[in-house]
Amino acid sequence: MSDTSKIINLTLKIWRQENGASAGAFKNYPSGPISTDMSFLEMLDVVNEALTRQGEEPVAFDHDCREGICGACGTVINGQAHGHQQGTTLCQLHMRNFKDGDTIVIEPFRSRAFPLIKDLIVDRSALDTLVAEGGYVSVNTGGAIEANTILVPQQTADQALDASECIGCGACVAACPNGSAMLFVSAKVSQLALLPQGKPERAKRALAMVRKMDELGFGNCGNERECEAACPKQISITNIARLNREFFKASLFSREK
């Protein structure tokens, strides 16, 4: 569609692994002719269609909405989660960002808390377990008060939404040398700490989610800022600072255990 559309050819070095128990290895595939207007996943579709026709099993990868919002997709491209373009999910990374003749290394998110399932697919259910620990306001259906009796300054609502834009893709964990989920947890804790609705459970939430994070095998934050750089929604690490504050306050001054 763009005026600069071109056809390029690439070499893909893709991680293949039958399942969590088997050994994996990189395998090389020629991409065939690729339009620079394609998204990265459309390029993988083309490669998979060719593999299928040759009777080979296509490369398994997670993906769904292809609009950058569901958080299903995500692999490591040339060493970077979601590829080198800032603020982009893999499905929104377009081939115009690569050059003819490039070799692209494609491997799964690697982290202790994300066991591999097959090829590029990993198990990120630990992130759901973290949310279950307190990433919500405990309000039953039907018990809500009239919406406009809760006033929220516009700036606060904006800040809360900045944090709540997290799509739960796990790139922050994959990018972190310690495999920490601090950015993910801090985004949820921040959203609810900023809003009046989240205040009653504020201390409990921070303590419970941080503890669970340790329990699930996520590492700790070493201020490397790799998470922020990899985040497709550009969630700021100021959220981690807020989480630390919330956690200390809760540990020292609250009655929550």
Binding site: A147, N148, I150, V152, P153, A160, L192, Q197, G198
Partner: peptide
């Protein structure tokens, strides 16, 4: 209308006016 009340109570960060209303 109940849906909006419910979602606001859950902390859904809807767009707000300067005065803090929805």
């Amino acid at each position: 209308n109940n849906i909006i009340d419910q979602c606001v109570a859950q902390g859904v960060p809807f767009a707000r006016e300067y005065g803090g209303g929805l």
